[in-house]
Design a protein around this nucleic acid. Sequence first.
DNA 1: ATTTTCGGTACAAGCGCTTGCAGAAGACCC
DNA 2: GGGTCTTCTGCAAGCGCTTGTACCGAAAAT
Lengths: 333, 333
Amino acid sequence: MVTLADIARHANVSSGTVSRVLNNKTDYPVSGPTVERIRRAAAELGYRPNVMARALATGKAQAIGLCYHSITEPMFIRILEAAEAKARERGYHLIVSSNPESFFAGSIVDGLVYIGGLSHPRVQEFARHKPVVFVGPSDFRGSACGPNTVTWSEYEAAFMAVKHLAGLGHRTIGALWGDDDPALLLRLEGFRAAVAEFGLTGVEETGEQDPDPTRRGYLQMERLLGREPRPTAVFARNDYLALGALKQLFEAGVSVPREMSVIYYGNSVLARAAYVELSSVSHPNAEASVVALEQLIAMIDEGVREFPNVSLPITLCEHDSCVSPAPSLSTSP
Amino acid sequence: MVTLADIARHANVSSGTVSRVLNNKTDYPVSGPTVERIRRAAAELGYRPNVMARALATGKAQAIGLCYHSITEPMFIRILEAAEAKARERGYHLIVSSNPESFFAGSIVDGLVYIGGLSHPRVQEFARHKPVVFVGPSDFRGSACGPNTVTWSEYEAAFMAVKHLAGLGHRTIGALWGDDDPALLLRLEGFRAAVAEFGLTGVEETGEQDPDPTRRGYLQMERLLGREPRPTAVFARNDYLALGALKQLFEAGVSVPREMSVIYYGNSVLARAAYVELSSVSHPNAEASVVALEQLIAMIDEGVREFPNVSLPITLCEHDSCVSPAPSLSTSP
DNA sequence: ATTTTCGGTACAAGCGCTTGCAGAAGACCC
DNA sequence: GGGTCTTCTGCAAGCGCTTGTACCGAAAAT
């Protein structure tokens, strides 16, 4: 291992000077030839700064923690990808863990990005010492979230999906909601608001217990097909539900999109790969993680204490699964 | 920030003693009451060891790097999940990056797991200083890989898939191989060997250029349907190809599995969510990352220099997409 | 009673880096 | 030519932790 002292010896200067030169400390005047000697010596010896020693001396780890409550969430992978690239670009390492405890050990990270929830007791505690940015969907219309959050609105996503379907002429619209977690039910509000605003009939399927999310979609779609009046379009709360629903429609011989339009909320390759390319209202997960990282680094490097919520827009992605309902179907039987 | 010195002052001992007590150094005798006092003081003050200082003193970062060449590979997420849990269990942090350079900074990690290739020039260089374990598919039959690798055999996967189809009575079997990357073509060997061994006719589709892997599968399946004799079963090299193929079959009105059996190589939720639950030959990616981590930690903690290749078995996962060919189809027209 | 042993504890030297401060040389002004 | 600047560089004190070694008292062995 090559140390500053080794370089100092080679270049006939002190280790302090080497440190300042290698870190481009401009407030410290060093003559041209000396800089030259030091740089050459460093290059020749193949110097790599010891991150630990630097971290100890400066009190900065140059590392950011990425914490998430569910890694298998399809959105996680894109968040991670974007975050890692951004962190690297800014000279930070990324330490991942699903357990906030991992980051409590003193000084392991300079800040934390928490994915998937706008709060977490242990993370809140961590936030008292070091900057934390929360990233995830919000239940509210607009940016009604607290500080230090980067969000998108599931309310708006649901609203936008229904609006799209209403625009195509659908009058009766189903919602596949999977389980009945209260936090998730809250997000039905966007669906309900749109149904009310456009004077539609909403058919909600909730409370399915099956542990397999694809199967939840499958079963809920089965029930939906038995409803009177039968919806001509359906909004699924996530990728898995949409895929399960699609499977049900396939088996029941219901043509998509001719007899049933399908749109879902999500953002992954999953549903894009189905036998009918599904339209969606997509959340800006990758962008959100980039924004979160930039905000976090600003907090770390510039000592910013707090920034107001950033709410990123939902995007409507039109593919092949939504069309206007057939005349015979749009009028109730 | 609470330091060892603070605790030492509180407990009326020296910081050295505190360190030894808190780290359970058994070779160092400390009286019961003293241990009590130290532990209580640490708890009261809310002591968190400074990882950086410890790392500097011990020369160990208690961190492992996870490096991958493609994060969007569907298998990556399961590898990461398993690796993170294992690392945490063993008291290591996990630092992820797609860029090996990230780990070259002195002493940032104690070792490296490289996912997705059995070699990489920069990582090889890293391996000269610190332990590295490579994880990924191998092209060979059995465990013909170098040391410090955890692999599974794509040769065997392809062989096993074809064997399964042959056992069901299929005589003409297609292979969807996507692009014509030489490294990937090598893996066709398992397919060819099985075709030869069971006296079948193999129809290979390769060299598709489209950048979208799902579309590659879609187009290759289209071509395959025009072949004479038309295969009654098809093996797809990955999830995306399988999904694209399935879409083609749907549009062409070819029933799966009645008119065409489909099996693919992979291991993700992707193809499980299709309208016909696809059978597969699955690779042990999560297990591999766990084994890799254990081996790596053994190398770090016990100074093991090298371990022989570990080759994990491929699993046949039977679902709904493979059946015996219809009599009218199994005999050539 | 003297030596040996050993349980219990403190001391201090690092690990490699950063950084405030002091110091040495030369240039400049009066 | 002595003082004040500027320009350049070295010194050394940490950052918080680990760990080899020295030390002291009391019990055990001689």
